[in-house]
């Protein structure tokens, strides 16, 4: 069991060290140029291959999971979000799912109940929802903030986001909220995997590796911003070089940055082959993205084929005498 998280942890350390020392040994061009390009390429190709792979599989039946009243008689109130019969309802359902993790939130209902002894019950489950939301949104903000390294001039929306993220105005350089929330949420999700017996039981190495990777990325990023103070001008020169396809390796960037960049590259390259593809899968899940209107509108199965059936004629041939005797109508009376 321990190997399930120790090996991923060791792997992340090792990867960081490889880049850190490699860059120091004059391999900066590899970790700063070649590998990032390869990783992004792997990400794009892998992502597209995976999603088109899913899309290539048929959707033979319309089988949404219905979580509310269906549309039937006009005077019965339909639950348009949880049991949509139109595409606008489906879109709303998907938006709520993607932006608020609505299904995960259902988990938490019990947390607001009172139990038999009339105490408000306590449940970890609400924290799974909170933790997951915090993690994903913080991650999104961090990614968007990083666009300042890939754009010149920096668009005002990115600057605005940055201002919002740094709104607490603590310390110098100013503390970003996302920089606190992301590692905290990731640590929470990790703790759940390690200490909650049931989650630990179902966890695989593939669940720990991305968490450690993201924690590693966050740790290197935070230490560059707040503690070791890397050469921002040089880094921006390099990142701009990458996006404009005229890569350069400025001097004095430091191994820490190469470590950071390498871990990010690994994350990109690893993404399509991993469970992280839930990012794409959530859009395609047939139990969520289909309208519950199968009886109203015919759904076509692309591979529907004819099957042998026991016809009425077979049936009557088999039972004709008995049917006649019982006074049941028959087609042929002999």
């Amino acid at each position: 069991m321990t190997q399930k998280y120790l090996i991923p942890l060791a792997a992340v350390f090792l990867l960081f060290l490889v880049a850190y020392t490699g860059a120091g040994a004059g391999l900066g061009w590899f970790f700063g140029i070649v590998f990032p390009y390869l990783a992004v390429l792997a990400f794009l190709v892998g992502f597209v291959v995976k999603v088109t792979g899913w899309a290539a599989s048929a959707v033979p039946f319309r089988i949404p999971t219905t979580c509310g009243q269906q549309k039937s008689l006009p005077w019965i109130k339909q639950n348009c979000i949880d049991n949509p019969d139109t595409s606008s309802g489906v879109i709303l359902r998907m938006l709520l799912e993607i932006f608020t993790f609505r299904s995960l939130f259902r988990n938490t209902k019990a947390a607001f109940n009172r139990n038999a002894s009339n105490r408000i019950t306590y449940s970890w489950e609400i924290f799974l929802w909170v933790g997951a939301l915090a993690f994903h949104y913080a991650f999104l903000v961090v990614i968007l903030r990083h666009f300042r390294f890939f754009t010149a001039p920096v668009p005002s929306c990115i600057q605005f986001l940055e201002a919002l993220d740094g709104i607490v105005q603590v310390g110098l350089p100013g503390l970003f909220l996302s920089g606190v929330v992301l590692p905290a949420a990731a640590l929470f999700l990790l703790a759940r995997r390690l200490f909650d017996a049931k989650v630990r039981y179902v966890s695989q190495a593939a669940d720990f590796f991305p968490l450690f990777l993201i924690l590693g990325i966050a740790a290197t990023g935070i230490s560059m911003r707040y503690f070791t103070k890397v050469d921002i001008v040089g880094i921006k020169e390099m990142t701009m070089g990458l996006v404009t396809f005229s890569p350069v390796i400025p001097d004095g960037i430091g191994g820490l940055f190469y470590g950071h960049l390498f871990l990010v590259s690994i994350l990109f390259a690893y993404f399509p082959a991993s469970k992280l593809m839930h990012l794409g899968g959530v859009f395609l899940s047939p139990t969520r993205n289909m309208a519950n209107n199968t009886r109203a509108k015919r759904h076509v199965n692309p591979w529907n084929y004819d099957v042998p059936i026991h016809t009425y004629q077979d049936y009557e041939d088999h039972f004709r005498d008995k049917m006649i005797e019982a006074g049941l109508p028959v087609e042929k009376k002999e």
Binding site: S103, R192, S203, D207
Partner: peptide
């Protein structure tokens, strides 16, 4: 492919 083993269903 997409299960993240979050344990919500357990």
């Amino acid at each position: 492919d997409v299960c993240v083993r979050c344990g919500a269903c357990a």
